[in-house]
Simulated assay, not measured.
Amino acid sequence: MPLTNQQIRHLRSLAHHLKPIVMIGEKGVTENLSTELNRALEDHELIKVSIAGADKEERGTITKALCQTSGAQLVQRIGRISVLYRPSQKPQIVIPTRN
């Protein structure tokens, strides 16, 4: 289910103060990284991911791969930081409903 603009704005405001939980280095997306990403999304629902050592196009490709493998949705991407959201089994974040 794609997020509405209102929901994205709300999630961006919640993510503003967060620090990156998942950091991707030169090895890129590995199986262990995918496991940690899924664990972080289940625990926090809304996370920041830091992607180091890549150019703009490569960071976009990595972000898309992360979203596809984890089932998360991209909320925002600024520079080397991507904000991902995926509701967990026990939702902690209440996002505005669609109008």
Rank of each mutant, 00 (worst) to 15 (best):
P2W: 05
P2A: 05
L3E: 06
T4K: 13
N5G: 11
N5C: 02
N5W: 11
Q7R: 07
R9G: 07
R9F: 14
H10I: 09
R12E: 12
L18C: 04
I21Q: 12
M23R: 15
M23L: 15
I24W: 01
G25L: 13
E26I: 08
E26Y: 12
E26G: 10
K27G: 06
K27Y: 08
T30A: 14
S34A: 13
S34L: 15
S34H: 10
T35A: 14
L37G: 06
N38I: 04
R39L: 12
A40E: 06
E42A: 10
D43C: 04
D43E: 15
H44Q: 09
H44M: 11
L46D: 00
L46Q: 00
I47W: 00
V49D: 05
S50Y: 09
I51G: 01
A52I: 12
G53N: 10
G53T: 06
G53I: 05
A54I: 00
E57S: 15
E57K: 14
G60Y: 06
T61K: 11
T63V: 14
T63E: 04
T69K: 10
S70V: 09
S70N: 06
S70M: 08
G71E: 11
A72W: 01
A72Q: 02
Q73A: 08
V75A: 01
R77S: 12
I78D: 09
I78C: 04
I78M: 11
V83Y: 01
V83E: 04
Y85C: 00
Y85P: 00
P87G: 08
P87T: 10
S88E: 12
Q89F: 10
Q92I: 05
Q92Y: 06
V94L: 08
V94S: 12
V94T: 14
I95Y: 03
R98K: 15
